Computed example of a mutant assay.
Amino acid sequence: MPELAEAREAIVAAGQRLDRFGWVPATAGNISVRLRDGTVAITRSGGHKGFLDADGVIRVGLDGRSLREGDRPSAETGLHCGIYRRFPEAGAVLHGHSVPVTVLSRLAGESIRLEGYELLKAFPGLATHAAAVELPVFDNDQDIGRLQDAVETRWGGAASVLPGYLLRGHGIYVWGADMPQALMRLEAVEFMLRCELEARRLS
């Protein structure tokens, strides 16, 4: 796990990358990294992720509380911390608001089925395109504690959980062991969801 300075660099670079794809418009989205001391570096509330600098990244505990007076983390910090608490191997979390994610999550039921895509291999345990996954979709909720409870209920005692989910009409959460893996998974899911959206349009 990185120290704070290294994590800040990774988060700033990730914000610029997500911005180039149009996945974090205005002040949308948030990005975090688990630090070596067990705390979390996460984007400050209200900033544009394409214009982040080191001051736009703060530290919080696994309870989501800021570790420095005056620092205000994103309202959705609790969802990042919920991932880190549940998955010790998670080292980075990305949350974006792309058009395919927003549209498809509004049309979906409890999940979106992704099947037959080469990029399914971005997920753990899938070595071939001849596979299918159910990407969970949760109803959005401004009460982050209640939303995290709903997510954890769906995870339940499952031995393996797909490292990503959607919030209806809101956005996507994806995580990985480090920032490169989290970015790779997010890009793979975004590509597949864009294909799904285009397929619906053409049909």
Rank of each mutant, 00 (worst) to 15 (best):
Gly82Gln: 00
Leu193Ser: 07
Leu162Trp: 11
Leu162Glu: 12
Arg72Glu: 15
Leu120His: 08
Val137Glu: 02
Ala188Phe: 12
Gly46Asn: 13
Ala5Pro: 11
Thr77Val: 15
Asp63Arg: 09
Leu107Arg: 12
Trp23Cys: 03
Ala150Leu: 13
Val137Gln: 03
Leu197Tyr: 07
Gly116Val: 06
Leu120Trp: 11
Arg8Leu: 12
Arg72Tyr: 13
Ala5Glu: 14
Gly176Val: 04
Leu162Asn: 11
Asp55His: 10
Glu198Ile: 09
Leu202Gln: 14
Leu126Ser: 12
Val133Asp: 03
Met192Gln: 01
Ala28Leu: 04
Thr77Pro: 13
Pro100Asp: 00
Glu152His: 11
Thr39Arg: 14
Asp63Ala: 10
Arg17Cys: 03
Val174Trp: 03
Leu193His: 05
Cys195Thr: 14
Glu118Ser: 12
Arg17Gly: 01
Val12Glu: 02
Gly125Ser: 07
Gly46Ala: 09
Leu119Trp: 15
Arg113Ser: 11
Asp178Tyr: 15
Ser74Trp: 11
Ala131Trp: 06
Thr39Gln: 13
Leu79Lys: 09
Glu134Phe: 05
Asp63Phe: 09
Gly157Gln: 10
Pro124Glu: 12
Ser74Tyr: 10
Glu198Trp: 12
Asp149Glu: 10
Ala10Trp: 03
Glu76Met: 15
Glu196Pro: 09
Ala158Asn: 08
Asp149Arg: 13
Gly47Trp: 08
Gly64Trp: 01
His48Ala: 15
Pro73Trp: 11
Tyr165Ala: 02
Gly164Thr: 03
Leu67Pro: 05
Pro88Ile: 06
Glu152Arg: 07
Ala150Phe: 10
Ala132His: 05
Thr102Gln: 01
Ser66Thr: 03
Val60Cys: 07
Pro163Trp: 08
